[in-house]
Amino acid sequence: MLQFDRVSFSYGNETVLDEISFSVAKGTYQGLIGPSGCGKTTLIQLTTGLLEASRGQVQRRFNRLGLVCQNDTLIEEIGLLKNLTYVCADKDLALRCLELVGLGDLPHTKRAGALSKGMKKRLEIARALSVSPDLLIMDEPFSGLDQVAKIALIAQMKHFLTATETTFWYVTHDIDEAMIICDDLTVLSAKPTRVLKRFGQIQQADKAAVKKQILQLLREKSCVLPFHQK
């Protein structure tokens, strides 16, 4: 569905990505882990076509892409439903997506700017789902959310993804989050970013051992991790 083949990218003289190769297979829940500032968002921009690779190839074999960005990307001046119909023509589907993320009970005309941070994230997720994506990309969507809201949202997300068989690519620097959601993980190094290791089909029983391995790997490469993961 998505394949990076020896992809390199530079901002001017600074090499950000150095010969990155990995793929996201259809129907899988892929995780991409790397230290902050390693170029994860750049990889997403290469996927969306907002940036072009300096070298190598990005093969995109999907029709519709859903994207939840790290920062707020809502139109705060308009209502909940209008934020969804901004990208999706099907009003009924938009209403179903609002229900799915638990915002169905709110007045649909309530302005997005008046929502709490957690609700805004839910609305962004609903917007991404409302286009019925083949591939759903989430770029650190839960940063800044409290633990309770995060766990509730992750559970809802997994439920939806299973029901719709959507391919899911989850980009984060938080290993715990990635371990909860994803089956396969790709670990990136600090800049110039390379793929350190790939973990495929991680079973529940192996998750603790895999986490230990990832932390060990990142420490060896002197990557800066969030405090709670050290």
Binding site: Q45, T48, L65, L67, C69, D72, I78, Y86, V87
Partner: peptide, 19 residues
Amino acid sequence: GMTTINRVYRVPFVRQAFY
């Protein structure tokens, strides 16, 4: 970030103007 959203979801310019 809205520029990214507009391009990813291919939002028509008229809709961008009104919404």
